[in-house]
Structures are given as C-alpha cells and as structure tokens.
C-alpha cells in the first residue's frame, strides 16, 4: 500500500488522479499512526516551506517521515515535498527534515550573486523543461523514459544537495540545477510528475511498481 501524505500543503487531487490512472493502491495519511501499514510513501506539496514544516512538526509528521525513511522503504518527495528533505530552505529561512545534507536555494538570490538577469530567466520557473542524467546512470524512476524529455516545473526555489552523488537528474534555467535528487531508498523530484503527461505517469508508475536499484 502506498501512502500519500496530506499535510495541508496544496491539494492532493492531482496526485490522487495520477495514482488512480496508474492503478496503484494508495491511502491518504494525515496522522503518524497512519504510517503503520504502508510500504511506499509519497510526500507531494505545493506552497511554502515554513508553513509546511510547522504543520509537520505540530502534528508529529516530521518524525513519522524520518522513521519511515529509516526502514529503507521507497520514499518519493514531489516539489515542496522534495525541498523539505534537505537541511535548510532559504524560503523564509526554514529548518527542514535533514534527510539529505544540503540547502534549498532561491533562484532569485542565486541570480543576484551570479549577475544573471531575472528578466531573461523568470521566477517562478514555470513550464516544461528537459531533464538529463549522466550517460549510463539512469535512475530506476526513469525506466522507459527517453533521456532529455520534458517535465512540468513550477517553483521559485531549487534543491542543492551537498554531495554531487545525490544528484540523479538535472535541468537548466539560467543555471543547471538538480531536478531529481536521492540516495538509497529516497527520491525527490522538483517537477510535478502528476502534471507531466505520459512520461510523468510513467515515472509515478515506476515508483509504485519498482524498487530502487532495479534496472
């Protein structure tokens, strides 16, 4: 059974529809005790990091996520759900879960530092952008998806893990940034697979059916 976490961060409708389409069996989780009977966890989310983290902490869900991840069962974070797995987010300077060393950074701040014009590369980064990975290093989530296909993004902050080994796919918007991060059982995608057409559904299907390390 797949658990989809409801933590008051945006709506779950799109993710639920996509899982229905993939014919996956899933349940909506809203309390720590709901985590008991699931063998896969999806943390979706749109919205703002600080509010999301506060909600998780106030409801004991931060601990529940971390304990789930320690079991080695597959985890998938989507968009905001991908950003909160790092140590820290520049969005209202928020301490996050720290499942992976690194920071979620602001495009605008990075553009300022690097002298990139925000008029050339608009923020939020909204739209379809291509996702690439190093040759021969296709993650299990990308099975059956050709290299360099486009996924739908909608975000103003991007994940920047400390270790390059944790970057499983990249995209480009003024700078090259990680579109997929992960290690062991943890995967986090910045784009919205549930809104990325047939290839997005394929990625979600891979998460529902396969195991990390599958080829």
């Amino acid at each position: 059974m797949i658990g989809v976490l409801d933590y008051n961060a945006g709506n779950l409708t799109s993710v639920q529809s996509a899982l229905h389409y993939c014919k996956a069996k899933f349940t909506i989780l809203s309390r720590p005790e709901d985590f008991l009977h699931i063998d896969r966890l999806i943390v979706p989310g749109v919205g703002e990091a600080r509010a999301a983290m506060e909600y998780l902490q106030n409801n004991g869900l931060d601990q529940a996520i971390m304990e789930f991840c320690q079991t080695g069962k597959p985890f998938l974070g989507i968009c905001l759900g991908s950003q909160i797995i790092l140590d820290f987010s520049q969005e209202r300077d928020t301490s996050c879960l720290g499942l992976m060393p690194g920071t979620c950074k602001s495009f605008s701040l990075t553009y300022g530092e690097k002298g990139i014009s925000p008029r050339d590369f608009k923020v939020p980064h909204i739209g379809w952008n291509q996702v690439s990975w190093p040759e021969g290093k296709e993650d299990y989530l990308f099975q059956g998806i050709p290299h360099g296909r486009s996924f739908y993004f909608d975000h103003g902050y991007y994940n920047s893990p400390l270790s390059k080994d944790h970057v499983l796919g990249t995209s480009d918007h003024g700078i090259s940034f990680p579109a997929v991060i992960g290690f062991e059982n943890i995967r986090a995608v910045q784009f919205h697979p549930e809104k990325s057409g047939a290839y997005g559904l394929r990625l979600l299907g891979n998460f529902c059916l396969k195991q990390p390390g599958d080829r």
């Binding site: 529809s17 389409y21 809104k195 057409g197 997005g200």
Partner: peptide, 11 residues
C-alpha cells in the same frame, strides 16, 4: 474542473 483533473495530466 473535477472531471478534467481526473483524466488530464497537464497543468
């Protein structure tokens, strides 16, 4: 809107 959300997987 609800029907569209159920079967269309683009924003």
């Amino acid at each position: 809107v609800e029907e569209v959300a159920q079967e269309i997987f683009i924003p």
